[in-house]
Design a protein around this nucleic acid. Structure first.
Lengths: 337, 337
DNA sequence: ATGAAAGCGCTAACAT
DNA sequence: ATGTTAGCGCTTTCAT
């Protein structure tokens, strides 16, 4: 039994003035108007519980207070949702609604964009579950204003990505500073994150004059990491490393899931973390990292920061970055180092 | 340089007929109209790439093709997102857009509903990250048509929840069928899921004439499970159980995260899974369950089923359930049993 | 300073 | 069977 919402006209009639005047008063246009009138109108609007009809507004403006988010795997694979959460919070506080559409690695992107467009969003943002390069057709590219956790291979769309290389550098530096010298690395094959983190690792090692042994920089899986036919090599690799005459005293794991397997394998070969081997990793997938025994030291992906930054850009509080903006990881120190 | 989208009027002018006729043709109303005319109009509309303006439609109808979803922790805590994913997919296939608003255990619900309402959704659904009882004020209750993974304590709103009791029953039965007799249970204190699963466990045991030992039905944490000051009791409990003269040969873990701790603790007391102890759990949080060593047998939460069911209800393909509909879990057998 | 009127794109009610 | 009119709620001319 809810009654019809109050419209501008309801207010205007009650005051015996025109709709336009009310509209002007509430929107601060109509430069000339006595402050008194304006105030009177505002008060009455509040009293009557006036809420502007966004649909009507949208129709007039040709745009709705909506921002579309193309989520590439973001909804499916839950762990990057922090990006979305921060982004959503920020936009909401500005009266904007985020509409999420999940897609899968660029497939059906055009169709999804068209669906989104039906609701006339102000802009459309593309976010990926993991750090990847995206190749979109030209017609699609023109419609996307920002990319999160991924980037446009054509370099046309501003992008916010985690600074993987620097994270690899920091992880290695952290182990080196802790006195570890014989550092091994379990790479994530087929992932941008993997190769950049490995590059940072190499840079840190070379700056410190440490050698990177070829047999200590191994892929964690056979085949690209997230593919269906990826087979874990962790157990075999750890067994090989720790049956040789010289074993690593620190392992950098491509990500927390790899670290979880490393923990299992180290137990089998009877090594103690961190006494025998220090472990550091990437991502900070808290369900895993915090619960491992001992809790895992890891470089936290800056998902939160990316989400906030993106929100600030979309709401115009920060300038649009040129090209690629690299956001730093945060070291979360626990007990594995 | 995109041109203005084509409107009904564009089509009408081109054909020299009235707007209304075009509208009627495309919407199958206007009962009387030669099939030929209708077809001609349709063809031209397609050619011109006509897309109905949903905003204008919404303004006319007073409702948008939108369903609001109040997500209680759903976005924050990523692991129940499967509900959302299925729900979203189903609605999308019917031309409906889901708008998610995250809230926190009933706080700000009214404000969030009002925000949602600005976009004039057809209905509003409430979904919770975990199975809980929700107490909403009357004014709010009236606006919610369905609750997912939680229920209205006033019993007024149709609800879809996992059948926790039966899952507990099935987990226990599975261990019993596997020849285990001395079954212990690690409960989730302060959670509906916990007490119902425990009840099912008791029922199965009593049906089989097995006794439930008081000291073998213990809480996994001190304090409610997800509260900040919950402290894990798993390690101490396992140590106590396995230093006594008679130890369990099967453990039912309140959920997969508890199981992860049980694995760690069992290693410390030198027991082998499943040789010495079978482990079964609840949730099927795949990142954890599949990666534990050995992989964990667990009762999978029916999130997917809840999402689908909800989608079918909202799109009118299934009738609205009366009161509480309990959706069964699915047993995922791995190597811990 | 305020009001009147037009129009955004669509559909329902009412003619013809 | 097709066309005309009106109106959803809002904002933007243009007039007063």
């Amino acid at each position: 039994m809810t009654s019809r919402p109050v419209s501008l006209r309801d207010i205007a009639e009650k005051l015996g003035i025109s709709v336009k005047t009310v509209s002007g008063a509430l929107n601060n246009n109509s430069i000339r108007m006595s402050e008194e009138t304006r105030e009177r109108i505002r008060t009455l609007a509040d009293e009557m519980g006036y809420q502007p009809n966004e649909i009507a507004r949208g129709m007039r403006a040709g745009v709705m207070p909506i921002v579309g988010l193309l989520a590439d795997g973001l909804v499916t694979q839950p762990f990057a949702t922090e990006i979305l959460r921060q982004f959503d919070n920020l936009l909401r506080s500005q009266g904007l609604t985020v509409i999420v559409t999940s897609i899968h690695s660029g497939e059906h992107t055009e169709k999804s964009i068209n669906e989104l467009r039906r609701l006339m969003p102000q802009q459309i943002v593309y976010a990926s579950m993991f750090h990847q390069a995206i190749d979109l057709p030209e017609a699609v590219r023109r419609q996307i204003s920002l990319m999160l956790n991924c980037f446009d291979i054509h370099g046309e769309i501003p992008s916010l990505v985690p600074d993987e290389e620097f994270a690899g550098y920091e992880a290695a530096t952290f182990l080196l500073d802790g006195g570890r010298k014989r550092i091994a690395y379990l790479d994530l094959p087929g992932l941008i994150a993997g190769s950049l983190r490995a590059a940072g690792f190499r840079r840190a090692m070379s700056e410190r004059g440490e050698t990177v042994r070829n047999d200590w920089l191994m892929p964690a899986t056979k085949g690209a990491l997230y593919s269906d036919r990826a087979r874990s090599l962790v157990k075999a690799t750890i067994e090989a490393w720790f049956s040789a005459s010289e074993a690593p005293d620190g392992i950098i794991c491509g990500n927390d899931r790899v670290a979880m397997e490393v923990y299992n394998s180290l137990r089998r070969v009877g090594r103690i973390i961190p006494d025998d081997v220090a472990i550091i990793s990437f991502d900070n997938q808290v369900d895993i990292a915090r619960r491992l025994d001992p809790p895992l030291t890891t470089m936290a992906l800056p998902h939160r920061e990316i989400g906030r930054f993106a929100g600030d850009i979309v709401t115009g509080r920060k300038p649009i970055p040129q090209g690629l903006a690299r956001i730093p990881f945060r070291l979360v120190e626990r007990s594995s180092t």
